[in-house]
Computed example of a mutant assay.
Amino acid sequence: MSETPELVVLLADDGTPIGTAEKATVHTEDTPLHQAFSCHVFDDAGRVLVTRRALSKKTWPGVWTNSFCGHPAPGEDLGEAITRRAERELGLAVSDVRVALPDFRYRAVDASGVVENEICPVYTARASGDPQPAADEVAEWAWVEPDALRSAVAATPFAYSPWIGWQLAVWQGAYSAES
């Protein structure tokens, strides 16, 4: 029995869905615009979860980033995709999922030449307990104070994914679970 390939939703420049492609084949040196999401998970103490991408990741292996990212399946609600991906990637049940940056979009090229090209709304969520991440997704994780994260990204941007720096730079208001 073969596993069904994971699909991503391809988008026109205005964000209109125009088709799908297999996730395993879409991230190349000429990645088409597609739908994604990014999520920053907060704990009950107001700390944010940061993760270090697994060394086996195709793009930005080994860099620190937001809690998790992903792609909704065709027709899947973004809130449902976030809940699904939090469980798959981090072994966490999340609640209180809220959009923080609904219009976030970026294009970035990693050192290997692979492009990320996404319309990627940014969300916050809450979780209790520590993650039990999938080894193929996350190498390390830490709960950090939001101000400490901002300072670390500003001081050592090369150690972080480009999208977390851009997200923090445009975040309106305080970067916290209440955002």
Rank of each mutant, 00 (worst) to 15 (best):
M1I: 03
E3L: 13
T4N: 11
P5N: 01
L7T: 03
V8W: 03
V8E: 02
A12R: 13
G15H: 11
T16R: 15
T16S: 14
I18C: 13
T20A: 05
A21R: 11
A21E: 14
A21I: 06
K23S: 12
K23L: 14
K23W: 10
A24N: 11
A24I: 00
T25Q: 12
H27V: 15
H27F: 15
T28S: 15
E29G: 10
D30E: 10
T31A: 05
T31Y: 08
T31N: 09
L33N: 06
A36M: 14
F37G: 00
C39L: 12
H40Y: 14
V41T: 10
V41A: 05
F42W: 05
D44L: 08
A45N: 09
G46E: 06
R47L: 00
T51V: 12
R52E: 15
A54H: 08
L55M: 14
L55N: 15
S56Q: 13
K57I: 00
K57N: 11
T59K: 08
T59P: 01
T59N: 10
W60R: 09
W60M: 00
W60Y: 15
P61S: 10
G62Y: 13
V63T: 14
T65R: 04
T65H: 08
S67Q: 05
F68Y: 14
C69P: 02
C69E: 09
G70Q: 03
H71E: 14
H71V: 13
H71N: 15
H71L: 07
H71F: 13
H71Y: 13
H71G: 05
H71D: 14
P72L: 04
A73I: 00
G75F: 04
G75L: 02
G75D: 07
L78Y: 07
L78H: 08
E80S: 12
A81Q: 01
I82A: 02
T83Y: 09
R84H: 11
R84W: 07
R85S: 13
R88L: 14
G91M: 10
G91H: 07
L92S: 03
V94W: 01
S95G: 15
S95R: 15
D96Y: 06
D96C: 08
V97W: 01
A100E: 05
P102K: 01
D103T: 11
F104E: 01
R105C: 08
R105L: 07
Y106N: 02
Y106A: 08
D110Y: 04
D110G: 05
S112T: 12
V114A: 11
V115S: 06
E118D: 10
Y123I: 02
R126D: 08
A127S: 11
A127V: 05
G129R: 11
Q132Y: 10
P133W: 05
A134Y: 12
A134N: 15
E137D: 14
A142N: 12
A142W: 12
D147V: 07
A148V: 12
L149Y: 04
L149K: 03
R150N: 00
R150A: 14
A152K: 09
A154H: 07
T156M: 13
P157V: 06
F158I: 05
Y160R: 03
S161L: 06
S161W: 02
P162G: 05
W163C: 04
I164R: 00
I164L: 12
I164Y: 01
I164Q: 01
G165V: 06
L168D: 05
A169W: 07
W171V: 05
W171D: 02
Q172M: 11
A174P: 08
A174L: 09
E178M: 03
E178L: 09
S179H: 07
